[in-house]
């Protein structure tokens, strides 16, 4: 076991981990931050996406020890300071961008990363950016719509609600 320290959702945390401990395991089991989900073992589904130093990363495909000193943000750190939904989260609810909720943390984290890079993406850019996030429930329509809405764009023309 080796001690690893990082900042998670603004809080300094540390824990003892093995070499093979993945960031996702450290978050879920070490820190009880179970909002980050693991949906596959080939780094494809994206349910585990978190931000590492601001960039989207699949937390199931990075070792905790490789992130000594890093700044991590997870779905638990995405709401407004008062606990209310952030504009992106609110857009997901307003536009029914989730159903079973399992892929949702990864979708929100990837979408937030997109909007940080590209504040007014086109629908095609949203779809391309979410290539590493698989959703089985929504057919993606309302996810794309939610992200566009969160970017301040008018989505009334995107098939009626």
């Amino acid at each position: 076991m080796t001690k690893v320290s990082m900042t998670v959702n603004g809080r300094a945390v540390s824990g003892d981990v093995e070499g093979r401990t993945l960031l996702s395991t450290f978050l879920r089991e070490g820190l009880a931050l179970t909002g980050t989900h693991v949906g596959c073992d080939t780094s494809q589904c994206g349910a585990c996406v978190v931000h590492v130093n601001g960039a989207p990363v699949k937390s199931c495909t990075v070792f905790a020890l490789d992130l000594e000193g890093a700044t991590i943000r997870t779905i638990e750190g995405m709401a407004n300071a008062d606990g209310s939904l952030s504009p992106l989260q609110q857009a997901f609810q307003d536009h029914h961008g989730l159903q079973c909720g399992f892929c949702t943390p990864g979708m929100v984290m990837s979408s937030a990363a997109l909007l940080a890079e590209n504040p007014r993406p086109t629908p095609q850019e949203v779809r391309a950016y979410l290539d590493g996030n698989i959703c089985r429930c929504t057919g993606y329509h309302n996810i794309v719509k939610a992200v566009l809405a969160a970017s301040g764009q008018d989505v009334s023309a995107v098939a009626a609600e």
């Binding site: 780094s43 994206g46 996406v49 590492v52 960039a55 989207p56 990363v57 699949k58 495909t61 990075v62 990837s110 990363a113 997109l114 950016y129 979410l130 290539d131 590493g132 996030n133």
Partner: peptide, 9 residues
């Protein structure tokens, strides 16, 4: 390559 999260790492 891959997707944005893969490209980060």
């Amino acid at each position: 390559i891959g997707d944005p999260a893969v490209r980060s790492r």
